[in-house]
């Protein structure tokens, strides 16, 4: 058994779990945060992407014990209150989803991309950076539009705040 203490969406949690427990299972089963999805379970589809210390990782390919001491953000922690995060809103506006299964991972990956590029994003970069996220409804066109739109909005907001 492993003692796991971490901060999830701003809340400190501590659990005693098996050493083999994956972070994805820890989030879904121990914390009942089922917004993080498990799609392929073979580290390819990206439906399970969460942020660990601000970086996008596949939570099905990381042990809960490895995440001990970190700060984790899941889709549930992206926005507070009734307002959606700009990336969530853009996916809605552009219909960047069909069945919705990949969407939480897509959104977490997209927030990471926008944060890393600091506004300087183009379509080719977004497509390359979404390499680790698979949408089986083949809805990539609208996803890419949503990411670019959210990037423009978030970058614009940053400028307005300065």
């Amino acid at each position: 058994m492993a003692k796991v203490e971490l901060t999830v969406n701003g809340r400190k949690v501590a659990r005693e779990v098996e050493g083999r427990m994956l972070l994805a299972h820890f989030l879904r089963e121990e914390l009942e945060l089922t917004g993080t999805h498990i799609g392929c379970d073979t580290s390819q589809c990206g439906a399970c992407v969460v942020h660990v210390d601000g970086k996008a990782v596949k939570s099905c390919t990381m042990l809960a014990a490895q995440a001990s001491g970190t700060e984790v953000t899941t889709i549930e922690g992206l926005s507070t209150g009734a307002d959606l995060h700009p990336v969530q809103r853009a996916f809605n506006t552009h219909h960047g989803l069909q069945c919705g299964f990949c969407t939480t991972g897509m959104i977490m990956a997209s927030v990471d991309i926008i944060n890393r590029y600091g506004g300087a994003l183009d379509e080719a970069t977004v497509r390359a950076e979404l390499e680790g996220n698979i949408c089986r409804c083949t809805g990539y066109h609208n996803i890419v539009k949503a990411v670019l739109d959210a990037n423009a909005e978030m970058h614009g907001q940053t400028q307005a705040a300065e």
Binding site: S43, G46, V49, V52, K55, A56, V57, K58, T61, M62, A109, D112, I113, E129, E131, G132, N133
Partner: peptide, 9 residues
């Protein structure tokens, strides 16, 4: 190498 999430780990 791989994709961004793999490169972070």
């Amino acid at each position: 190498i791989g994709d961004p999430h793999v490169r972070h780990m």
